[in-house]
Write a protein that binds this DNA or RNA. Structure first.
Length: 104
DNA sequence: CGGATGACGCAGT
DNA sequence: TACTGCGCCATCC
């Protein structure tokens, strides 16, 4: 049953467990931008968009996203230096694509 | 219908 | 680590 790309992306995103994150690249290998486009179009509440971060752990939705993630206990690495953006500790909170497919 | 655009990723500098 | 350039692909104009 080949669902179109958008549906596959949403299905994987919905499989991300609370407290963990995955990346745009995991949701859509080869066309990561598409993942962002799809999440942006998805109706609010239909998908945990805040659990999707960039490959390096940085956030695409700034402060709003940071709050939601910290609320779920996602670990962050912030350098003490001011001016630097917070990044998720990928080594600990990142769920790889394969794991999402299994849990699917 | 060609070109610009984006919630990206990666290699090179 | 930061910045740049280029590839990706569905949408918009």
């Amino acid at each position: 049953m080949d669902r179109d790309r958008a549906e596959r992306i949403l299905a994987l995103a919905r499989a991300i467990p609370e407290g963990f994150v995955t990346t745009y690249g995991d949701l859509s290998p080869g066309a990561p931008r598409l993942a962002g486009t799809v999440l942006a179009a998805a109706p609010d509440g239909s998908v945990p968009w805040h659990r999707v971060v960039r490959a390096d752990g940085s956030l695409a939705q700034g402060e709003r996203q940071r709050r939601l993630l910290e609320g779920e206990g996602v670990p962050f690495v912030t350098s003490g230096v001011a001016g630097r953006r917070p990044r998720v500790e990928m080594e600990i909170a990142h769920i790889p694509r394969e794991a999402l497919i299994d849990a699917r």
